[in-house]
Simulated scan of single mutants.
Amino acid sequence: MSASTQTQPTRTRQWLLVNKPTGLPVLSGADQTFKLQTTSLPLPLEQNQLLLKLVYLSNDPGQRGRISPHINPDRIYLPPVQLDTPMPSSGLAEVLDSTSSQPGFRKGDLVLAPVGWSEYVVLNVSACQPAPELPGGLSRTHHLGALGWPGLTAYYGIKEIGETKSSEVVVVSGAAGATGGMAVQVAKKIVGAKLVVGIAGGEEKCRYVEQKLGADKCVDYKKEGWKKDLAEATSAARGGNEKGFVDVYFDNVGGQMLDYMLSRMAMHGRVVACGAISQYNSSEGTRLKNYFEVVSMRIQIRGMFGFDYTHKMAEVMGIFKQAIQQGKLNVSGEIEQVVEAKFEEVPKVWMMLFEGANTGKLVTKII
């Protein structure tokens, strides 16, 4: 990508958090959650700093938890977003100016950075990573998805937290999402699990999980009788045993789905607690009616967060790239959804996460 030939900006537009929502974020009116403002950039650059222009923005469900008014700052994996500060997010940005001599951080380079919902931003080089071209002509947007934090999270969730074996039955909720989709592929194509069943919303998403990601079966939770469908799908790996219990459950949904899955776990089953998107826009928790299943079936539930494995990023990406070359992983435009939008529309695109409107990793391309 070539550096911009336009006059370098001295001001930037930003989306600030101005009201912490108790339910779905509000995009207009007196109680709107976000506000667009223009502010000056901290120029001139100091040593080892970059002036960046946002090109691609990552949309992540976890951002919702950080803006809840009910979050205890001592009980969240990243600090809550303060009022009247820019919404945080990672993204791919073009280097417009640089005071660094390091390769990968020069004018015209593309970097992975914590840009937030800001059109332009000044950051220290230490906060950024080069985003080099990917093999096989893959879009560099995969640095935000399959070859980024979602992929890393899926790999360690399945391999280390879930301790998944090739002889086991795996179920993944949110299977059409960025992390869930990679969890399906890791379980089936890298670990070689005996049976991998996805849970997703709608027939189209279920076809995607089966045909593009390689799940043995995907169950549509929006369909009446989906619990019976799930039991039938998992029983296939048990020689037709109608019990069809599950060894590893990779959970991205939480709430009532997690509660139901506790009743479907095999003895010594493992639950990988990765997310709880069903609860992000609710001020009330979900009572687990099946909690005693944890005791009676000796179930292990273990939470995880991808940032815990930052030091393993290069190793895992090497494994993924080798698997791509061997044709084991589908890392293409099919497993991400890039939405072109003006900067004014950033919150609107982000809200697609909570409407079930996206398939795969949701990325905003700023136009």
Rank of each mutant, 00 (worst) to 15 (best):
V191E: 11
Q325M: 02
V111H: 05
L152D: 07
Y56G: 00
L52C: 12
A3P: 03
P21F: 10
H142N: 03
D74L: 13
K159I: 09
H142I: 08
C128T: 06
E46F: 03
G202A: 05
P86E: 10
N330V: 13
F343E: 09
E336N: 06
R270P: 11
Q14L: 07
G148F: 01
G116R: 07
L52V: 07
R106G: 14
R64A: 10
M297T: 04
V316G: 00
S118C: 14
K53S: 13
S126V: 12
T141M: 10
P114H: 04
P132V: 05
V316F: 07
E336M: 13
A154H: 01
L134C: 05
Q211V: 06
Y260F: 15
W226Y: 14
Q326N: 12
G244A: 11
V271N: 12
I158N: 02
Y291K: 08
D229G: 01
R140D: 11
V349K: 04
Q63L: 15
V95F: 08
M87N: 12
I277V: 15
P44T: 00
R298E: 14
V272T: 01
F250C: 08
K289M: 14
K289I: 13
V248D: 09
I190H: 00
N19P: 01
V18P: 00
A233Q: 01
L45Y: 08
G116S: 08
Q82V: 14
K107D: 05
I324V: 14
E168P: 02
Y291V: 15
P86T: 09
V115I: 15
Q185Y: 07
V122Y: 04
Y56I: 00
E210G: 11
V246D: 06
R75L: 14
